[in-house]
Computed example of a mutant assay.
Amino acid sequence: MKWSEFSIHTTQEAVEPVSNILHEAGASGVVIEDPHDLVKEWGVNLGELYQLSPDDYPEEGVIVKAYFPVNSFLAETIEEIKESINGLLLHDIDLGYNKVTLSEVQEEEWATAWKKYYKPVKVSNSITIKPTWEDYTPVDDHECIIELDPGMAFGTGTHPTTVLCIQAIEKAIQPGDSVVDVGTGSGVLSIAAAKLGAKRVLALDLDEIAVNSARVNSELNHVESVVSVKQNNLLEQIDEQADLIVANILAEVIVRFVHDAATVLKPNGTFITSGIINRKKQEVKDCLLENGFIIEETLQMEDWVAFIARKS
């Protein structure tokens, strides 16, 4: 089968929303070439466990690639994708070069080539994320391994926003906590919460593909008895009480349900928010404060910010 490679040269800020647009358009795989990965620092005692080649990355900006089958609907699909991406400008998202290129590839060329970008990575003091096909031996008995297969349409779990969330969960979670993961995607944050001692995790996502992916990954990591996955729009009609809510979503979306998070959280409960580009930091912070939250800690990696907030 022949496939069309859709490549867009954009910004780090736009990676998440652009990837989401490509997934919703039916992409059979997404690759992110971010030069920040070449010099990324994960913090004390943390680091990438493999070497990347600079030749595979742009000098500046980020390249996002997606793959679509070559068929009679392809031209229409590509135009709809371009229109949706340009629509992100209405949400004040910097698209950078916003340059799109198309090329044709054979199935065997891309089906395995993207795996060179994905190796085991230690993202926090106790969590290491590894692809299912890689062998990895834990450094000590306290290290938790999360296995993911990005072929199921979502990222590798090593984007700064995800790493910040995992580090924040590790700081805030208490054994036996009940957790709600809003916009679960691959389910990696729910899995991390379960492995770090949560008694029950409710993973929510509006996207049916995400729901299925989170279920598969939960089973892959043997936490399906703890993690319950549900198709749901943010926290709408969620009336159970939680000790901790985590949301790795765009800032524009976070501010829409901060009030609902305050309602769902138990007294003194914790709300972890990530997916916030630095220039949106104050907007989210103000919204949290206005809804009765106390900012306990602000975490930052590159241009991304995460808040650990407590319900007062």
Score class of each variant (00 low, 15 high):
His259Cys: 14
Glu252Ala: 04
Ile146Cys: 05
Ala168Cys: 10
Asn248Gly: 03
Lys115Met: 03
Ile294Pro: 06
Glu59Ile: 15
Tyr97Ile: 04
Tyr97Thr: 01
Ala194Tyr: 02
Leu74Ser: 06
Thr10Glu: 10
Gln241Ser: 08
Ile308Val: 07
Ala210Trp: 03
Glu236Gln: 15
Asp55Pro: 06
Asp181Ala: 00
Phe6Asp: 10
Leu88Ile: 01
Glu224Thr: 11
Asp260Ser: 15
Ala214Gln: 09
Gly155His: 00
Val211Ile: 04
Leu206Ala: 12
Ser186Ala: 03
Cys287Glu: 15
Lys116Leu: 07
Ala172Phe: 10
Ile173Val: 10
Gln51Thr: 10
Val258Ile: 14
His36Cys: 15
Val30Asp: 09
Tyr118Cys: 01
Thr161Asn: 02
Ile308Ala: 09
Ser213Lys: 07
His259Ala: 15
Val15Tyr: 06
Gln167Leu: 06
Gly155Arg: 02
Glu147Thr: 15
Tyr117Ser: 06
Ile209Pro: 02
Val18Gln: 11
Val223Glu: 01
Pro54Ala: 13
Asp205His: 07
Ala66Tyr: 05
Ser190Arg: 06
Ile276Lys: 04
Asn278Lys: 15
Ala111Cys: 04
Tyr118Gly: 01
Leu204Thr: 00
Val31Ser: 13
Pro54Tyr: 13
Leu90His: 08
Asn98Phe: 11
Glu134Met: 08
Cys287Asn: 13
Lys266Asn: 10
Asp260Thr: 13
Val305Glu: 10
Leu88Tyr: 01
Ala192Arg: 12
Pro17Phe: 02
Val255Lys: 10
Glu16Lys: 03
Val246Ala: 09
Ile166Trp: 11
Glu76His: 11
Glu170Ala: 05
Asp37Met: 12
Thr101Asn: 11
Ile166Phe: 12
Gly183Phe: 03
Leu235Tyr: 09
Glu79Thr: 00
Trp133Gln: 11
Leu206Ser: 12
Asp260Cys: 15
Ser190Ala: 01
Ile276Leu: 00
Leu22His: 07
Met301Cys: 08
Ser7Phe: 08
Ile93Asp: 06
Glu83Met: 10
Lys266Ala: 09
Ile78Cys: 12
Asp260Val: 14
Ser312Met: 14
Tyr67Glu: 03
Ile85Cys: 08
Gln106Ala: 09
Lys285Trp: 11
Ala192Met: 12
Asn212Ser: 00
Lys40Ser: 15
Ile146Tyr: 02
Trp42Ile: 05
Ile85Thr: 07
Ser53Val: 02
Ala172Lys: 11
Ser124Gln: 05
Leu49Trp: 06
Ala75Leu: 10
Asp181Leu: 00
Ala306Ile: 00
Leu250Cys: 01
Gly29Gln: 08
Leu88Phe: 00
Lys2Gly: 04
Leu220Thr: 02
Val264Arg: 07
Ile209Gly: 04
Val121Asn: 05
Gln106Pro: 07
